[in-house]
Nucleic acid binder design. Structure first.
Lengths: 212, 212
DNA sequence: GCGCCGGCTTGACAGCTGTCAAGGGATCTC
DNA sequence: GAGATCCCTTGACAGCTGTCAAGCCGGCGC
């Protein structure tokens, strides 16, 4: 049956091409992430991004339909990675104390190591308030973060034999506010910002979980 | 003594010119505020701003040295007005209940009526993370807001005969997080966002003030 | 009433932007 | 090994941007 073999072959080739396409996309997105984190959404041109990669600016339109698609793609990629890290803490923690410390330590470490990535996230989120093209993707990322925070506080309550006394949205808002302000101080040169964040994250976790 | 009279006269003229200058500056800043709130910092050109005023684009460089000075000027002007409103609540409240309700109601009303102004504020604040030229002014505004929140929670604690159990920075971070997320939902079309904010603001006030 | 000057407009400038079409070169298939 | 397909580069485009110099006009002081 030569037709079947032929189709299989074509499938194999097609899949390989898809893989390569996705791989290069991810590669370009990674380069874009660095540049965007350095300059911000508004001040980054496609030529800037290409210059920080090993390709020319024209190729970006081969792998991304739009500047917007490129930006959302690479931020989404990064944020998905972040969520995974936090979920790792949730999965591996066996005691409330361990979870609390692990969570706070990860937040503080993230602030220290990847402040610029997060300022890009906040930039994108703010831009979505003006440009509706961004909104759907941003909302999706935002909700994934909200759920992630909820998993943490829920697990903490469970381990502590208590219950969460705030809404899912409020819990996220508090932690987001905490992180954002730590980010400002950190980027303004405040060397103690991460330590303060660590402490505040722990305190808030106990405030948010009541005895129940 | 003709010299004295002459000098007085010159002073009077000079002062009038200064007044006119300041008046027109404020007028242009008000027009800029509207346009910036509509389009965002990055997407607003000086021509856009001028078109929404009754002047031409060249005049902006007569009253402002820079696009940056114009932006910071009009946001600062607006935020100072906001702070005054909240301080009015603090001054006029005689009971903890009155303060709590007034504070929450003002926040919710602000969200409803001036959402676009506040998205501009968040935009500017985020831009300051990338462009250091903005940073000093933004930090000053941010601190004025932090102090404003602190005045509210302090007064509430005083009226309730209790004490505040979080730091000044943390209190601001929580309220800012709450407002920011309400802003997102509101601008995304969630009609109940303001009501939820009202409730959350009140709850947080009691959480932040412990018995003491 | 005359002249000056402050306030405003106009127009131009150089630079940068996203987008895309044309084409080259390598790689893979048959 | 020929041909086609894919990937990437180059170059150009039209539009927009902040900035500023040149100049006009009316109202002010004298």
């Amino acid at each position: 049956m030569p037709e079947i073999a032929e189709r299989r072959n074509r499938d194999r080739i097609a899949r390989r091409q898809v893989d390569r396409f996705a791989e290069r996309r991810a590669q370009l997105a990674a380069a874009a992430l660095q540049t965007l984190a350095e300059l911000g959404v508004a001040r980054t041109s496609l030529r800037d991004i290409a210059q920080n990669s090993e390709f020319s600016h024209g190729v970006l339109h081969y792998y991304f339909s739009d500047k917007i698609e490129l930006i959302t793609c690479c931020v989404r990629q990064y944020k998905a990675e972040c969520v995974k890290r936090y979920d790792g803490i949730v999965a591996s923690s066996g005691s409330p104390h361990e979870l609390k410390q692990g969570f706070a330590a990860l937040m503080a470490a993230t602030l220290r190591a990847e402040a610029k990535m997060h300022r890009l996230w906040y930039d994108l989120r703010t831009q979505s308030l003006f440009d509706e093209t961004f909104r759907a993707d941003v909302e999706e990322i935002d909700q994934s973060l909200e759920r992630m925070i909820w998993r943490i506080v829920s697990k903490y309550a469970e381990l502590a034999g208590a219950s969460v006394v705030v809404s899912k949205a409020a819990a996220y808002a508090f932690y987001d506010g905490l992180f954002q302000h730590a980010l400002f101080r950190h980027l303004a040169g405040d060397a103690g910002a991460a330590d303060v964040l660590d402490e505040n994250v722990q305190r808030l976790l106990d405030s948010v979980v009541g005895s129940g």
